[in-house]
């Protein structure tokens, strides 16, 4: 592969190093707090911990509930189920909707697109109370179903718009060719278009997962049984009215971000696979 001139390479590395340093510094402060004893942050600006301890992780993993159950495992499991279901529901609902909006012409298709956008505009923080009452009427309060549906509807507008963009960028000749081969609408969608939109699906899957995984406000409002709480709620419980256990919070923050990093690592392949794996030529 052709390498550009040395100064351009150095410039690239310099930019990346600066960006990484800016990104990493606060993160290292969190990591440092997770491994240093005490509930408060240290004053020193150095990201290197002076004393190491695992007490915060022990507190995090060993926290027990009223009946002696291990809270971390319970809440992590709840979070995982919620996030995975949100991803499945959000991505599948959005894929089909985005395909229809991209390729099919029917009355009201423009309005539909704008509606997905418009409903995002009302600030979500103010909708929690009406949503609470609505979920109550539907019997979805304090349930995984309700939470997943709410998360999915939060994620859907972005997913629909992004996937529509990806579908728009795929040439129509593909579908015409598939139709000539005798495929119906669903077959075309499932066998031809969907695999080519893998980067879009990767982005929307990651986005849906993260919407559900890190979300705290709705989980703590709509769940009233603490065996159904998700992980962010457990971590947020260390923030009290007057004082907080920042060591616990930092340990929790690190553990919470690991699955996201793992997911991103897996999805990277799809993100950068794209058309190079496909068959557009010819």
């Amino acid at each position: 592969m052709k390498r550009p001139r040395l100064y351009l390479q150095l410039l690239t590395y310099a930019a990346l190093v600066v960006a990484a340093a800016v990104v990493l510094y606060p993160v290292l402060l969190v990591v440092k707090k997770a491994f240093e004893p005490g509930r408060q942050f240290a004053l020193s600006a150095s990201p290197i911990p002076t004393t190491l301890t695992t007490e915060h992780f022990a507190d995090l993993f060993g926290a027990r509930g009223g009946h002696g159950e291990l809270l971390f495992l319970h809440h992590a499991w709840n979070s995982l189920v919620a996030a995975i279901l949100t991803t499945i529901v959000g991505v599948s609902l959005s894929c089909t909707a985005a395909y229809a909006l991209s390729r099919m012409r029917f009355p009201g298709h423009k309005a539909g697109l704008i509606t997905f956008l418009v409903v995002q505009m009302f600030p979500a923080t103010l909708l929690i109370m009406p949503l609470y009452v609505l979920l109550d009427r539907l019997g979805l309060l304090n349930s995984m179903v309700g939470l997943v549906l709410v998360y999915a509807t939060t994620a859907i507008p972005f997913c629909v718009w992004t996937l529509k963009g990806y579908f728009d960028s795929l040439p129509r000749e593909l579908e015409e060719a598939a139709r000539m081969d005798g495929a119906g609408a669903w077959q075309t969608f499932w066998r031809v278009m969907l695999p080519l939109a893998r980067p879009g699906i990767a982005v929307t899957a990651l986005f849906s997962f993260m919407t559900a995984w890190n979300e705290f406000i709705m989980a703590s409002t709509f769940l009233t049984d603490d065996s159904r709480y998700t992980l962010p709620v457990l971590i947020q419980s260390s923030v009290g009215q007057y004082s907080s256990d920042w060591g616990f919070f930092a340990a929790g923050a690190i553990v919470t971000s690991l699955p996201v990093m793992a997911l991103f690592y897996v999805l990277q392949k799809f993100l950068v696979g794209g058309l190079t794996a496909g068959s557009v030529k010819g």
Binding site: V30, M210, F216, Q236, F249, A253, I254, V260, M261, F264
Partner: peptide, 9 residues
């Protein structure tokens, strides 16, 4: 990383 870590902390 900034996206992955809970933004409260």
């Amino acid at each position: 990383l900034p996206w992955a870590i809970p933004n409260y902390i």
